[in-house]
Design a protein around this nucleic acid. Structure first.
Length: 477
DNA sequence: TTTTGAGTTGTTCGA
DNA sequence: GTCGAACAACTCAAA
């Protein structure tokens, strides 16, 4: 009886699982396996994300058991482990979803030399080889990329691979126990698993007033839960990209007014950004080490350790920056607007190398994904593919006022500021001593004064970027 | 090959 | 308070 191995990595779900579908169509018996890869666990260390992954494996195992199967767990070098499992089980095929990260590509090439590996499906709807310019080169600007992406036929619900009803898995295959996940702060509110993911997606796109139809304007509000918060689920494939994009197109079709339609389109664009950055990482793997833009590689970072620590701890004295950093450390997630605000602050107000921030995000984000995280940081730093213009520097005060108008986001994450009146919530240092006493927040005692002057640092950063450009131009000539 | 239009998310300044 | 321009050229993508 032919046996196939379904090697699960970033597709921890049963619905719309191409790997599982391929295995079931080619073999009577299927072995779903997850390999705990020490290299990957070390490289992408992050307790909150690891806990989410382990909880996701536990949930996947339960879902598989409900269908007569179970999750086989191994630990070690994937090439060794997959080859060993093929030997033990006599499997004729190994199916795995494509993964475009440089490490994953190397890993899978190594596995393919020692096991009958077939790569099927993809963590994005349109693989890197599909969205290319007419001359065959990859896009490096988002808008034309998205135009091309959208010109191709949209995925339809009928293309989703159905959830298997029953999976026959041979007995007697050894499996490790899924490790206990580390204890997490109570603020981490992402229950793992595809049922939760599907529930969140439905809540976002369905119902009387689905949030997707308010997305265009509400998505920027730090104080509202107006985003889908699906990123951790997409990160580990507890939901497929195709499921989300099918849902987005359905919402676009169902929209009965212009505002709703535009909102759903905006959400689709966000999903396309995810695809864009995975393509960028595939074609330009060096972005994990250096700036995408060569001319931006010579910026003289200030890299002041004390400032960096203050940023990490949420003690910069700029309330909206501190709120977002504490949200990150405590909950493992930040609102997208918050990511931009803190990234801009680190790079352009503190003049710290974006790679420091990128690494810190990877340590703490439950959804931490190398492609999207790197793309986002390089965008903010003005060093990336389709970078923000370098003179676009966020003002942490006006960003706070605009996107957290009554300060409830700040008060939620920075309790020292709970008693500060709205008029001062984004500029507590402008309170008189009397006002500080009344609000229970003495500057320098309960909450720090700003660690830098925004106006001063803005000029210094513009100067540093100008110098880098000029040095590059001189080197060229 | 050359030309042309355009480019996620902002801020500041001065009229 | 509102508005447009400047920020800085540059490079991309397509015609």
């Amino acid at each position: 009886m032919p046996t196939a191995i379904s090697w699960l990595r970033r597709d921890l779900r049963l619905a719309d699982n191409t790997t599982l579908g391929a295995a079931l169509s080619r073999a009577e018996q299927v072995i779903p396996v997850f390999v705990l890869d020490p290299t990957l666990l070390e490289r992408y260390a992050g307790t909150k994300r690891l806990a989410f992954l382990l909880a996701g494996l536990r949930q996947l195992d339960a879902d598989l058991r409900a269908r007569g199967s179970r999750l086989i767990v191994r630990r070690g070098d994937p090439a060794d482990e997959i080859a060993r499992l093929v030997r033990e089980s006599g499997a004729s095929f190994v199916f795995a979803e494509e993964d475009y990260e440089p490490y994953a590509q190397e890993r899978d090439d190594a596995v393919a030399t020692r096991a009958p590996l077939e790569r099927v499906g993809s963590p994005i709807v349109r693989p890197p080889s599909v969205v290319l310019k007419s001359d065959g080169d990859p896009y490096v600007v988002f808008t034309p990329f998205s135009r091309k992406w959208k010109s191709l036929p949209p995925p339809r619900a009928s293309e989703l691979v159905p959830t298997p009803e029953r999976i026959r898995t041979p007995r007697g295959i050894d499996s490790l126990c899924i490790p206990e996940e580390p204890q997490l702060p109570s603020g981490v509110a992402f229950p793992a698993g595809e049922a939760e993911a599907q529930h969140r997606l439905d809540a976002f796109v369905r119902g009387d007033e689905p949030p997707i139809y308010a997305y265009e304007t509400a998505r920027d509000r730090l104080d509202l839960d107006a985003t889908s918060q699906l990123s951790p689920y997409l990160r580990f494939g507890m939901l497929s990209a195709r499921q989300t994009i099918v849902a987005a197109y359905q919402a676009i079709d169902r929209a009965d007014n212009e505002k709703s339609r535009r909102s759903a389109e905006t959400w689709l664009d966000e999903l396309i950004w995810r695809e864009f950055y995975m393509c960028i990482l595939y074609y330009f793997p060096e972005v994990l080490e250096v700036s995408f833009r060569e001319k931006m590689r010579g910026i003289a970072w200030r890299n002041d350790e004390a400032s960096f620590d203050a940023w990490c701890e949420g003690k910069t004295g700029y309330p909206v920056v501190d709120a977002a950093m504490r949200q990150l450390v405590q909950s493992g997630w930040i609102h997208n607007r918050g990511r931009m605000v803190v990234a801009s602050f680190l790079v352009k107000d503190l003049l710290v190398d974006w790679r420091w921030g990128e690494a810190f995000f990877m340590q703490h984000l439950v959804d931490g994904d190398p492609a999207a995280n790197n793309g986002g940081w390089q965008w903010t730093a003005g060093t990336g593919a389709d970078a923000a213009p370098y003179f676009r520097i966020f003002n942490p005060i006006s960003q706070g006022k605009k996107h957290d108008p009554n300060g409830s986001y700040v008060r939620r994450w920075v309790p020292e500021l709970v008693g500060v009146p709205n008029a001062y919530i984004h500029t507590p240092w402008t309170m008189s001593l009397m006002q500080q006493r009344e609000s229970g927040c003495i500057l320098g005692v309960d909450y720090p004064p700003p660690i830098v002057d925004h106006a001063v640092m803005r000029e210094r950063t513009l100067q540093a970027y100008r110098a880098a450009r000029e040095a590059y131009a001189r080197g060229k000539s």
